[in-house]
C-alpha cells in the first residue's frame, strides 16, 4: 500500500546567501501510512514546525519532494492549493487565526474556501464542532467571547471541518491546563479512531506523545534521529536526553528504581503502565 505521505530527501534553508543562513531541515526522508497516529518530537528549533509546513505545501523545499498518495504536491499551483485541503495543518496557538463574527462562520472558513455547497458546509461545521465538544449555544457567539480552551478547540474544529486525509496539530496543548490538555489529547485519539485519518501530533511533551501516539519521529538539528514504535523510541532515553529531550517522568522514576536495586521493567512510558508494573511487583 502506498504511504499517505512520503517525504523524500527534503532540505530547507532559511535566508539563503545571508550571513544568518540556517539549514532548518536537512536531508529528511520518511513514510507515513494510512491511519497512523504519529508523534513528532524535538527540541525547540529542531525544525519540526518547518518540516510540517512542507507537508501541506506552505513552504517549498530547497530540494527534495513530498508525495501525497504517491503524487508530488509541488507539481503545479493547483496541486499545492489542493494539498492544503488534503493535509489539514493547525498551527501553534491556533486561536490567533480566529477572525469571524461567529464561531460558526469561523469554522466554515476552510470549507467555504473549498467551494463546497451550503448543505455540505453546514454538515461539516456541525460535525467538527460537536467533535471538539463545542455546544450549539457557542456557535452563534463571537469567537472572542470563548474561554482560552474553547477558542483553541474552535480553531482546531476550523481545520477538522475541511475533513483532511491527514491532520497535523502543532503543539495543540501548549499553554493549556492539565484538564484542557487531556480533553484535546483524547479528542485527537478519538478523531483518528472514528475517522481512520492519519494524525501527526507535534509536541515537545513526552508525556503527551507517550499517552496518545503509535509511532514517534524524533527530530534534532533539522535531521530525523529516530522513527519507530513509541516503546522502541522511548527505550533509548540516554540518546533522547543527549538531544535535550526528557523521557516521561514515569520512565525516569522506573529507571531510578532499577538503579536503586528494585527489579522492575524500565519500559514504562505512561502512568497507567507504571501503576500496573508496581502492582505486579507488590504481588510478588
Amino acid at each position: 500500500m502506498t504511504p499517505v505521505i512520503s517525504v523524500q530527501n527534503l532540505n530547507y534553508i532559511y535566508n539563503v546567501g545571508l550571513p544568518n543562513e540556517v539549514r532548518a531541515v536537512e536531508n529528511v526522508s520518511f513514510d507515513i501510512g494510512h491511519g497512523e497516529l504519529i508523534g513528532l518530537i524535538g527540541h525547540t528549533g529542531s525544525g519540526k514546525s518547518t518540516l510540517v509546513q512542507h507537508l501541506n505545501g506552505l513552504l517549498k523545499p530547497s530540494s527534495g519532494d513530498v508525495l501525497l498518495d504517491g503524487k508530488s504536491i509541488f507539481e503545479s499551483k493547483s496541486t499545492i492549493h489542493e494539498a492544503k485541503f488534503k493535509v489539514g495543518l493547525c498551527f501553534q496557538y491556533p486561536e490567533y487565526q480566529l477572525f469571524e463574527e461567529t464561531v460558526e462562520k469561523d469554522i466554515a472558513f476552510g470549507p467555504t474556501n473549498m467551494k463546497l455547497d451550503k448543505e455540505e458546509i453546514v454538515r461539516r461545521v456541525v460535525k467538527a464542532a460537536s467533535f471538539v465538544g463545542l455546544k450549539p449555544e457557542h456557535m452563534k457567539k463571537s469567537p472572542f467571547e470563548l474561554s482560552g480552551g474553547e477558542k483553541r478547540r474552535a480553531a482546531i474544529a476550523g481545520v477538522m471541518a475541511m475533513e483532511p486525509q491527514v491532520l497535523i496539530l502543532d503543539e495543540p496543548t501548549a499553554g493549556l491546563d492539565p484538564n484542557g490538555r487531556d480533553k484535546i489529547l483524547n479528542m485527537v485519539k478519538l478523531y483518528r479512531d472514528t475517522t481512520g485519518c492519519t494524525v501527526i501530533l507535534v509536541s515537545h511533551s513526552m508525556e503527551d506523545v507517550a499517552k496518545t501516539c503509535d509511532k514517534v519521529l524524533v527530530m534534532n538539528k533539522g535531521c530525523v534521529e529516530m522513527f519507530g514504535k513509541t516503546d522502541d523510541v522511548f527505550c533509548r532515553y540516554e540518546e533522547l536526553s543527549s538531544m535535550g529531550l526528557n523521557v516521561p517522568q514515569v520512565s525516569r522514576i522506573f529507571s531510578l528504581l532499577k538503579k536503586g536495586g528494585l527489579n522492575v521493567n524500565t519500559e514504562v512510558f505512561t502512568v497507567e503502565a507504571g501503576v500496573n508494573e508496581l502492582l505486579k511487583i507488590l504481588k510478588r
Binding site: L58, K84, F85, L89, F91, Y96, N113, V159
Partner: peptide, 16 residues
C-alpha cells in the same frame, strides 16, 4: 512575524 504566522494559518485553511 505575526502577519507571517496569521497568513500561514489562514493559507492552511485554503485562504487565497
Amino acid at each position: 512575524d505575526e502577519i507571517d504566522r496569521i497568513t500561514n494559518a489562514q493559507k492552511a485553511r485554503g485562504a487565497d
